[in-house]
Design a protein around this nucleic acid. Sequence first.
DNA 1: GTTCTTGCAAAATATTTGCAAGACG
DNA 2: CGTCTTGCAAATATTTTGCAAGAAC
Lengths: 140, 140
Amino acid sequence: MTDQELTLLFEQHGIRPTANRIIVAKALAAGHCPMTMAELEDHIGSIDKSGIFRSLTLFREHHLVHTLEDSEGVRYELCHSHDHSVDNDMHMHFHCEQCGATICLEDLPIPEVALPEGYQMQSANFILKGICPQCQKRQH
Amino acid sequence: MTDQELTLLFEQHGIRPTANRIIVAKALAAGHCPMTMAELEDHIGSIDKSGIFRSLTLFREHHLVHTLEDSEGVRYELCHSHDHSVDNDMHMHFHCEQCGATICLEDLPIPEVALPEGYQMQSANFILKGICPQCQKRQH
DNA sequence: GTTCTTGCAAAATATTTGCAAGACG
DNA sequence: CGTCTTGCAAATATTTTGCAAGAAC
């Protein structure tokens, strides 16, 4: 994602495009997967974790990212939805219990669910756990 | 669950039935939901968190419980499977973003998923997030 | 008596906040 | 100037371990 695209995206979400925020968002976009604070710190290098944290918190408040959790902790993922007031994340994820990575399975849409009366769904975190193809190979 | 049932269950999983472990497992069974360390500490009261932690770790190693994660952190749930070497958790969960509770939706089986070649699935954590019926009412 | 279990305290992590300096309008 | 943002340090919260005393076999 170019800086311009990101600046536009920020504008749509009512977020001021500061240098740090652009770096954080770019790192998230480049990851192509939901990322943890620790991963973002590693990939970025130049920004203090408190800055990353505050950017992510702001992004979340403005529905630019949503969160999901696995055994590595909280992960942040850019919202792909075009409705900027909603967090919907309509694809599955696979979490490898060996290497700890969490991968988007973009091609697997989350199935329809018949929620019982009274529940109001806002987002869905569907995570399959197991061993990823890389780790599978590594074992041989 | 009676102490006898639990003792049998422990035996099936190769776990020694100490007093503490029975208390921890009973608390989990009574909760009817996946529970966090903090919740277990509250409900039990008498056992130090390190003891609860070590019981849960042991249970997990012996496939008596499995874990799932939400914004409250790691939750532990008794395995209902009759295959004692597997963690399968075949129902959905609903996590309320208002009150933080995570509820089993026993009646909603997890759907079949066509995983791409190379992925080996061990368990599935399907968590819907939103507002639960109680919190829904509370807002009016 | 040897091994396993437990509680307490403390170490190791991870998350979140206060504050003063700097950037930006 | 006044408000917003940032980095650093420190406060909190959470998870995990070391160790000595006690229980179980």
